[in-house]
Structures are given as C-alpha cells and as structure tokens.
Design a binder for these strands. Structure first.
Length: 918
RNA sequence: GGGCGAUUAGCUCAGUUGGUUAGAGCAACUGGUUUACACCCAGUAGGUCGGCGGUUCGAGUCCGUCAUCGCCCACCA
C-alpha cells in the first residue's frame, strides 16, 4: 500500500492502470456458465473520425453501463470496432490524392482501393486509441471493421438473401443525386434546408394563339430546357380551353403540350407547372402518366449538357440559373421575380443541393416493418427517454404508408461491392433479371467470372452497419465458439447512441435482426420478435453544443479537443463532468467548468482517502465482512448509524438509476452523498472520535466500509482514481487484485451484512442527525451574521425540550459550530440574538452588544416566512375535504408541520417582544 | 402543412406515480492559515416554476389554450 500523495496526478495513474487492466484481461468478455451476459456493441466510429465531445459522452456512458454490469457480476462484453464509412473515407483519400495531383480515375479501382487501405492502416485506429485514453473498457481483442473478410461476407449474404426474398430490385428511378460526390444518396442522407431564392414568373407563348401567353412560376429556370410539357389542374377553369394546345418553350425553342394533371396545385403560383421529368419527382410522375419523354439536361457533376443548348453546355447549374433568367428577360418571357423561401435538399456530406435525378439504382423495400414497430410497441425494446419511441414509430409508419424504398447503391469504390454479375455482351436494356443466364447474384460470384462483369456500385454504408449486432458474432456462418457466443451475447443489452441516427441506424438494425436472426418467415410472433431483436434497451444521448447553444464544429472552432481536456482535468474528471450533464434533453450545453466540477470531485475523493490513510493504520480491508468485524457495536454513535443508513440509501439510489436508466441522477447522488454527507458532516463530526483510542478503530472501520462502497459505486464513472485508491486503502488483497474484478453489494445485502454483525441500524438516526445539523448550521449562521464567524471563544445558550439529544451530540456541536460552550437555559436571556431550530432556540452571547435594529429586521423577515406557512397549514386543517380525502400520512404530516411552524412562530414572536426598545 | 420537445434562481439544470414552506452546481457577495482538500471550509442573497383558464381537498407536476424557442418529418413547382 503506497502512501497517498498530497496531489492527485491523473496522468501517471491513468496510463499505468489502463495498461494493467488491458494486460490482465479485465475487459475480456467471455462466456461463463450460468452467468448472465451484458453486451454493448459500440456504435462504430468512422475511420476518418477524430474524437470529439459527442464521442466522449457516448462512450463514457457505454463504459459506465459495461463497468456497472461487471460490478453486478455479469459477463460484460463491450464490442469495439470501426466503420469503413464509404463516402466519407473515399472523399478523404481523394482529397489527399488531389493534393498529389492525382484523381481516383487515374489510378483505377484496384489501385485506388490500395491507397484507401493504406490510409486506413495509418489513420483508421486513431479514434480507438483515443478511446483508450478515456478509459473505455472494450474487449479490444475483438476489434472489428466493417470491411473485414467475415463482415464483408455477412454484408453480401444479407444482400443475396434479401434479393432472393424479393426485397431488393434494380430500377431506373428518381433518386437523390449529389453532384459533388457523384453518387446517389438515401433520403436520410439528404438534409432539408430553408433557402432564400427567387421565384421567377415566366410566360410561354401559346402556339395555337400567337400573342397569347400562359404564365408559369418556377424556382429553377435553369432546367427549363428539359421541359417537355406545361401542366394545369384538370378542374382549373382558367386553363380548360388550353389543355391539348401547345406552348413554345423559349429555349431551345420547341413546341410542348399543355396537359391536365391532378398533381398540380391550382392555388400555387399561377396554377401552371412546367414539367421537367428528369429533374423533379412530381414532374417525373406526371411524365409517366402522360407518356412524356425524359430530357436530362444535367451532367453528373451538376453542369449542363448538350441538350441544354447554347450557351449552357458545360455551365454550372447555379450559373446557368442566372444566365437562363437573363435570357428569359431578353426574350421577353420573364414577367417578374420575387423573393422566395423554400426548402432545398442538401447532401449531408458534401453540403451542396442535391439534384433529383433519374438514375439506375439498387433499391430495398424495407423488410419486417410491422415487426420493427411491434418490437418497440410491445416493449421488447425500450427507449430511454421513452419519447423517442414516437419518432421511431412515426418514421416507420411513413415508410410503410408511402412505400418508401431505400436506395442502397452508391457510385463509389470504397465499400462492399454489390454481389451481382451481368453476362458480358448483353446490352443494359436487354438484361432480364429473371434469367440466371443474364444476371448472377451470389456471395461467391459466378463459377466462370471471365464471362461476367460485376456491378460497379457498392452498398450504402448503413446497409452494412445495420448488421453490426450479429455480423460481429460470426453471422452468417457462426459455428463452434462463435455460434455459442452469438447465442450467448445476442440480443445485446443496451445500445447507446445519438437520436440523430434513429432512422439511419437504430430502426434498420432492428429490421436486420428481425429478418436475419432466425429462419426466413413472413410474419413473426411476439416471442420470435423478442428472440431476434438486436438490443433490449436503447439509451439516447443528447447532442453536445457549446455554452451558447451552437453546434460544435471545426469551422466555428468551438469544439474542444477531448484529449486536451483529459490532459488538463484527467480522464476521470472529464468523464464525471460529461456524465453529470448527460441526458438533459435534446441538447447539452457544454462548457469547461462542467469538467472542472468533475476534476474537483476527484480531488475531494483523493483527499478524503488520503485523510483516512493519515488517520490511522489501514488494517485488513479486503472484504466488507472483515471490515465489519472491526466494528464494536457498543462504540457506534448515532452519527455512525446515520452514515451507514445513508450508505444503504445511496447504494439503493444507484441501483435505481441503472434500472430506470436515469443516468444523470447517479453522479448527482454520489456527489451529494460523498461530499455533503460523508466529507462535510460525517468525517468532520468524527474527528474527535478518530483520535480517541477507545473509538478509533470502530470509526475507522465505518469509514473504510463507506469508502469501500463509495469506490465500488463510483468505479463506473471514474475508474482510474477509484482503482488507485482501491489499492492504496488496502481494499485489494494484493497488487493483482483489481477493483475491476470486484462485485458490488446491493443495498439489501450490504445492510443485511452490517446488521448481522452489529445489530439493527438505528433508523431514527436519520432524523436525529438532521436535527443536530440544523442546529449547527443555525449557530454558524448566527456567528456569521454577527461577524464572529472566525472566533471560537463565543459561548452559546440553548433553550430546549430535547436536551438529551443535544447532550448526546455536545462535542460534535461544539466542534462543528466552533463555539466555546452551549449551556442550557430555561428562559430567553435578555438581549441575546436567537436562532430558532427544531431542536431548540440557540442564543448568542455577545455580552449584550446586540444590534437591535438588525436583529429585529432579521426576526421579522423570518416571521413573515413562517406566517405564510402557517396560513397554508391552517387552511388545510380547516378544509374538511383535505382531511377526508388526503391519505392519512399526508394529513398527519401536514398537522405536524403546522405544529412545528406554529411553535417556531411563537418562539420568534416572543424573542421579538423581548428585544429592547430602540 | 403535420409531429415531437423545451420554457423553474444571473447561467446550466434536478424536481420519480399530483402531497410538507421548490433544490443543486456554477457565478455573485461576506467571512475564514479549523495540520485531508483554497481543485477547500463556513455563511448570505437570489425564483409570483413562460401567460391565461380548468380539474382537484391540494398543481412546478394532470388537462386546455396562447406565446416564445428548438428539433424532426413532408414532392406546393
């Protein structure tokens, strides 16, 4: 047992222990017969990611859950890994290549992928190493990557199965196209942003009636070259006689028909809509209904193509908008423009407006939508906070109602290449997907690859990460050990994640689990759902913002580097600070002083332990039992009973926090108990008994018992410092006995253990100590008010009908209140300021040097407060309905309250009367 | 246009199923070299719980409504 240094040096302690933990295998999650598993799958960070505050919050919480599970004796497995993050990583490496003057197309697919792998080897695990600094107790031996061979196979298998089951198809459909990344995106990767722009009102001349015009409004004049019709509502009388006629499209000048379609809103704009099937979903649908051609005037990179005609060819779409407007004006087609605000979809990653674009993509109809809803509705999966269930269900209902499919193909290279092969020599348009001679779909690929060409596209990253909870356990071909593990650890226990990926990831993982974790089945029973779900509880964290409520971002520079914070405050301090403010709501306003609170708490803990070590020899502390054996029940004071009762209470409170997922209440409860109850009151009150040889060993044993339990309870939040103190206070039998491997006693067990040895804990101690503390606080306040706070030679008097209690705590009162004496009196000594408490009225002897005016003011103020209470209490007592309908305990409580308040009131009233006249 | 959430002390937030006179941390102010801790100790001040209405013996807590703010979903060009 080392001597505890005066100052806690977080860095050396943290680095040292992390190594020991890892080497000792403390984080290994392995099957133990007859022991309940507790599993967390890390939300795999992107390999491009750097640790930010969001990760800290997220992973600190996971670590807390997993460490608590270990303490509860479960087989805890926290499964780590990273996500290949297709588009993000590819963009990153392309950027690097561009700096070297290269483009991915120069290298070709294979060489480019080599470059990405190289980059991944260098940078891909940085974030996991950063998590180690935080203290994350992952089972690193299992670290997984979504492009590992087995994972790759799992992804392809899921594709093939869904294809065979009819959920996946290829189709030419309107999709969200990102002109910068040049790939399709799913709806979830498109972010709607309000945009201020212009609303152009144009007029097209009617072919059959020269000189007459139809007015049309648009926000996108640059696409008018792709117009193939003008549509009006069939019931719109203004246009009835025009339907079937034509207008002149100004450029390229061409006749296009006026058609009637119900999709047009009569009351919006002019009621006439230009139809551009290649660049808008509604227009496309109209085009389909009216058999209109599709004129795509855009290139994949967002510039205009030959179909747009001069001068637009090769021009960027935003430039083209201005030029088109100018041209309309020159031609006399522009009627007017007005300011306009509408929502435009942006590519999440590239942050540019997406283009609705007609492209050939792979689509997935979501499987098991109904069961995915039922998993939550029937309570198999519980969300914390519960309100996110509504968001989840609402999204699923929308998917179901509107038949929204998932665009799963991406036109990038880094990812899982879609396992579909097309027979060479067959034209794209002639492919028959029902003919195995034309299209081959399998995990292994065709036996004669030379005759086939593989699909170029890869899968959406989320179409791989949705398998995370079971692909990591060896699915689809888990066997032997991995199969055992899949059975043992799946469904996993708790998912900790941000609500922002509830659709992208959470809902889809549930679907994947329901679809794949068992035989293929159209409909699932409730029991089957329970067996297949990927996790039982989902804990959603808030989003971390800066102290002004702004999103943390690199460009704002308002995102602190967590590693700097660890350097400054220690990982434990950071963890405590962050968890202390964890799930307040949607947003978490972060500022550094939160972390300061955590650091200060660690400092307090450190010093309390140090004080214990300085106060007397540390005996055998290796179990609760041996510590309790050192307690002499005869020597236990009311204060001891009080702190042991409180220890039981706080232990129960921590249990409740975990059971109910009320994580934020947990550090709060510990802070309050340890700092206020233990340090400020119990230790202070015990100081004299610690020096008294007859009581010392008992008091120190009580302290050891409290400290031991406190370290166990705090270990999940602040694992490093607790481990260090665990050793230093002799709770470990030897250097190799780690706190990590210990279990925590439940409140019930702890109490039973104590009571078995020392007899029943005095439950009344709680109330009694409260009275004593109130008196001490009152006396301290009086001293401060009369500017004698620092003097210890002030005598006090007390008038009380509970003198035995006061006598029993006399030493404590004198010590903690820092007064010379507390002498009982029968009456109010003349001219002394008084403080009324539930234990009696205390008088401060200032040798009659009282400031009468100040005293009167103070007493009157208090009288005012009490009067309010009395009025409220009396109203209740007169209220027959209250007396008859409120529970007896509440009525009794109110009655007592009133009596006490009344007594205090009378007391103060008397004091006031006895004040000398000014 | 739908939906979700928030509004409590100067700031950030607690406040469990309605039940004593609404709490904490930070900041502020006052006083402290109490031999564990100034990353500390003691104390003080600060709130008509967003407004209005309702249910109830009783509302910060439940219901309605309005206001402000935030988020999500949605093909009015």
């Amino acid at each position: 047992m080392a001597t505890i240094d005066k100052a806690y040096n977080a860095h050396t302690v943290e680095d040292r222990w992390y190594k020991i933990w890892e080497q000792s295998g403390a984080f290994r999650g392995e099957i133990r017969e007859g022991v309940d598993p507790y599993t967390i799958m890390i939300p795999p960070p992107n390999i491009t990611g750097m640790l930010h505050m969001g990760h800290i919050l997220n992973n600190a919480l996971q670590d807390i859950f997993i460490r608590r599970a270990r303490l509860e004796g479960k087989t805890a497995l926290w499964f780590p890994g990273t996500d290949h993050a297709g588009l993000a990583t590819q963009t990153r490496v392309e950027k690097k290549l561009r700096e070297e003057g290269l483009h991915r197309r120069d290298l070709g697919r294979e060489k480019f992928l080599d470059e990405v792998w190289k980059w991944r080897e260098e940078h891909g695990n940085i974030i996991l190493n950063q998590l180690r600094k935080l203290g994350a107790s992952c089972d690193w031996s299992r670290t997984s990557f979504t492009l590992d061979d087995h994972y790759y196979k799992a992804v392809l298998t899921s594709f093939v199965k869904l294809y065979e089951r009819g959920y996946i198809y290829r189709g030419l459909r309107m999709s969200n196209w990102c002109p910068v990344s040049q790939t399709a995106l799913s709806n979830e990767e498109v972010i709607m942003k309000p945009q201020r722009g212009l609303f152009y009102k144009m007029r097209y001349e009617i072919v059959e009636r020269p000189g007459e015009y139809v007015q049309i409004s648009t926000t996108r004049p640059e696409t008018l070259m792709g117009d193939v019709a003008v549509a009006v509502h069939p019931d719109d009388e203004r246009y009835t006689d025009l339907v079937g006629k034509h207008v002149w499209r100004p450029f390229p000048r061409e006749k296009i028909p006026i058609i009637a379609d119900k999709a047009v809103e009569k009351d919006f704009g002019t009621g006439a809509l230009k139809v551009t099937p290649a660049h808008d979903q509604v227009d496309f649908d109209i085009g389909q209904r009216h058999d209109l051609p599709v004129l795509d005037v855009l290139n994949p990179d967002g510039t205009l193509n030959e179909l747009a005609g001069d001068p637009f060819v090769g021009m960027d779409r935003f430039e083209a908008r201005k030029v088109a407007a100018r041209k309309l004006e020159e031609l006399g087609n522009l009627v007017d423009t007005e300011q306009y605000e509408n929502s435009v979809g942006f590519s999440e990653r590239a942050d540019v407006p997406i283009e609705p674009r007609l492209t050939m993509q792979w689509w997935m109809r979501y499987p098991k939508v109904d069961e995915t809803k039922r998993a939550v509705k029937e309570g198999h999966i519980r969300f914390h906070p519960k309100r996110w269930e509504k968001t989840y269900l609402h999204w699923l209902e929308t998917m179901e109602r509107d038949n929204i499919d998932w665009c799963i193909s991406r036109q990038v290279w880094w990812g899982h290449r879609i396992p579909v092969w097309y027979r060479k020599g067959i034209g794209k348009d002639d492919l028959d997907f029902n003919n195995p001679e034309h299209v081959h779909v399998s995990v292994e690929g065709p036996a004669d690859p030379e005759n086939w060409e593989q699909e170029e596209d890869v899968l959406d990253t989320w179409a791989s990460s949705w398998l995370w909870p079971f692909a990591n356990f060896g699915w689809p071909d888990a066997e032997g050990q991995t199969l055992e593990e899949l059975k043992h650890f799946y469904p996993t226990s708790t998912l900790v994640t941000g609500f922002d990926i509830i659709f992208l990831w959470v809902a889809r993982m549930v679907m994947a689990g329901l679809e794949f974790m068992g035989e293929e089945k159209e409909k699932l029973t409730s029991d089957e759902i329970a067996a297949r779900i990927p996790f039982k509880d989902v804990y959603f964290t808030g989003l971390i913002r800066d102290e002004k409520g702004r999103k943390m971002s690199k460009s704002l520079g308002n995102s602190p580097d967590p590693l700097d914070l660890i350097k400054k405050y220690g990982a434990d301090g950071l963890r405590f600070g962050v968890v202390n403010i964890a799930p307040s709501g949607q947003d978490i306003l972060f500022s550094e002083d939160r972390v300061e609170v955590g650091r200060n708490f660690c400092n307090k803990l450190w010093n309390a332990a140090r004080f214990r070590q300085m106060s007397g020899e540390v005996g055998n502390n290796t179990s609760e039992e041996v510590i309790i054996d050192r307690i002499d029940p005869e020597k236990l004071s009311t204060y001891d009973h009080w702190i042991l009762n409180r220890l039981e209470e706080v232990t129960a409170e921590v249990e409740r926090c975990f059971n109910k997922f009320e994580v934020h209440a947990y550090p709060r409860a510990m802070y309050e108990f340890f700092w206020n109850d233990y340090c400020d009151w119990y230790v202070e009150a015990s100081k004299s008994r610690m020096k008294d040889p007859s009581t010392q060993s008992t008091v120190l044993a009580v302290q050891d018992l409290v400290l031991r339990q406190v370290l166990l309870l705090l270990q999940p939040i602040i694992p490093f410092i607790t481990e260090e103190l665990w050793q230093n206070l002799g709770f470990a039998g030897s250097d190799s006995d780690l706190l990590q491997n210990c279990q925590v006693k439940t409140a019930v067990d702890l109490k039973a253990l104590i009571e078995a040895k020392v007899g029943a804990l005095d439950a009344d101690a709680l109330a009694e100590i409260e009275l004593v503390q109130e008196l001490i606080t009152r006396i301290r306040a009086m001293k401060a008010e009369y500017n004698v706070a620092s003097r210890r030679d002030i005598p006090f008097f007390i008038q009380s009908d509970k003198l035995p209690i006061i006598d029993g705590h006399m030493e404590t009162i004198l010590n903690l209140a820092q007064i010379q004496s507390l002498e009982a009196v029968d009456d109010h000594p003349e001219g002394m300021p008084a403080g009324v408490t539930h234990l009696g009225t205390a008088f401060l002897d200032l040798a009659h040097s009282i400031d009468v005016a100040a005293e009167r003011q103070r007493l009157e103020k208090e009288l005012g407060k009490l009067e309010k209470g009395i009025r409220a209490g009396e109203a209740k007592m007169k209220n027959g309905k209250f007396l008859s309908s409120a529970p007896p305990a509440v009525v009794e409580g109110a009655r007592e309250q009133l009596a006490k308040t009344q007594a205090r009131y009378d007391e103060i009233q008397k004091l006031l009367m006895s004040l000398p006249k000014e």
